[in-house]
């Protein structure tokens, strides 16, 4: 395959960026999108040019590091991560636009790499449980009803990639935050922090400069892990419950 790439190039956080055009040839339809970018970078390095910076780690769809907006879609045209997107989803001769996540809370570090530490701070605010360390506890000591376990697992699938923020017209982190809140709040292990978790995580989310939810639904469409839009409804419910309870103390 022969492709024309238009890639966002930006030297550093303070520099102005712009789209640069590159031609790549000899791309196999079985390559992943990141392998295609590796091919481009090898050519750039041989020519003595600066390779395109992009985030990646596991390359198997589980770590959440990869992050590209491809032809206007976060993670590209298929419902998966960029590392699991294959070139067979494109046609020979296509022109492909590649841009970084765009949100005030995700500043560009270089080229296609953005700083997602705002997500880490949201997790630090309440995305944990209090548990004694040491030997693993007896697994049957805390029974979890099957529907609750399924619900928790569905939300635990979030890999923190930030595609939801990138796709949202308001740069909102509601889907990410709600997946973490729902995951832990439904489980007995998460019960002691049930109220403080949702209050603190939502407060941190606001503090980081993410937008609010207008229920446009773009986040759930972009999410490679299929976190449902209803997850946000669930977090709203938890937040209102916690606010009512906190008001009584």
């Amino acid at each position: 395959m022969k492709l024309t790439l238009r890639v966002w190039r930006q030297k550093n956080a303070d520099a102005d960026g712009a789209m640069s055009t590159y031609e790549v040839d000899g791309i196999s339809p079985d390559m992943s999108f990141l392998e295609m970018l590796d091919t481009l970078n090898e050519e750039l390095i041989l020519k003595g040019e600066d390779p395109v910076a992009f985030d990646h780690d596991c390359r198997e769809g589980i770590c959440g590091a990869c992050s590209l907006v491809i032809n206007g879609d976060a993670h590209g045209p298929e419902r998966t991560t960029t590392c699991q997107l294959h070139m067979r989803s494109f046609r020979d001769g296509d022109t492909i636009d590649v841009e970084p996540w765009r949100a005030a809370a995700f500043p560009v570090v270089k080229d296609l790499v953005v700083d997602r530490s705002a997500f880490d701070r949201i997790i630090q605010a309440g995305g944990y449980i209090t548990a004694p360390t040491g030997a693993a506890p007896e697994a049957h000591a805390t029974p979890v009803p099957k529907p609750d376990a399924d619900f928790a697992f569905e939300h635990a699938e979030c890999i923190g990639c930030g595609a939801c923020v990138a796709a949202c017209p308001n740069g909102s982190a509601m889907l990410f935050t709600s997946s973490k809140v729902n995951h832990l709040n439904v489980l007995p292990q998460g019960a002691p922090e049930r109220e403080t978790r949702v209050l603190d995580m939502v407060a941190q989310m606001d503090e980081e400069g993410f937008g609010g939810c207008t229920l446009a639904g773009e986040c759930a469409t972009a999410c490679p892990k299929g976190i449902p839009l209803m997850s946000i409804t669930g977090m709203n419910k938890e937040w209102l419950r916690a606010t009512r309870k906190a008001g009584k103390r």
């Binding site: 206007g72 841009e99 765009r102 005030a104 937008g211």
Partner: peptide, 13 residues
């Protein structure tokens, strides 16, 4: 708040 959270638009509309 929403508009401020998304200052730069995507080139590919």
């Amino acid at each position: 708040r929403d508009i401020k959270a998304r200052p730069s638009k995507y080139v590919h509309k």
